[in-house]
């Protein structure tokens, strides 16, 4: 029996988010590809599956996939579905720092939302300086 597979990559659509659902999907998949969580040739779920799971229209997911394809991050074949392209993982020091930050936050018992608020506050304060 296969595992449930939720550890590989989970994306969340928040109706309260200012960005539309399509952009949220695109940004989260892109982030997972950049971070290497979605490796080369990893098959993405079908538009129908993702739309059903996220309770959005199939066109919304299709638009996100199209934008990812236009950015060269994924490719869509008729029979093979949508797969991650090679060479998309970002190997920058920033990524390592983000990973360290995440681990530190988890060790400190912070949730994702709290960490996001902290990053948001730091971002805003750096802009105002």
């Amino acid at each position: 029996m296969a595992a449930s597979g939720w550890g590989v990559g989970v994306i969340v659509i928040d109706p309260a988010n200012q960005n539309g659902p399509s952009e949220q999907i695109r940004a989260q998949i892109a982030a997972l590809i950049y971070s290497g969580a979605l490796a080369e040739d990893t098959k993405l779920p079908t538009v129908r599956q993702l739309a059903g799971d996220l309770r959005v229209a199939t066109g919304t997911v299709a638009r996100a996939y199209k934008e990812l394809e236009a950015a060269g991050m994924v490719r869509t074949g008729r029979a093979n579905g949508t797969k991650v392209n090679a060479g998309q993982t970002l190997e920058s020091p920033l990524l390592a720092e983000v990973r360290d930050l995440t681990l530190d936050a988890q060790r400190a018992g912070l949730g994702l939302e709290e960490l996001q608020k902290m990053v948001e506050a730091a971002w805003n304060s750096s802009i105002s300086q």
Partner: peptide, 20 residues
């Protein structure tokens, strides 16, 4: 009120559920 919805990025197939 409908809250956030989450989805796994693993494609689901029939073979994943039930006997081999």
């Amino acid at each position: 009120e409908k809250g956030p919805a989450s989805a796994s990025l693993v494609p689901r197939t029939t073979r994943m559920f039930g006997p081999a």
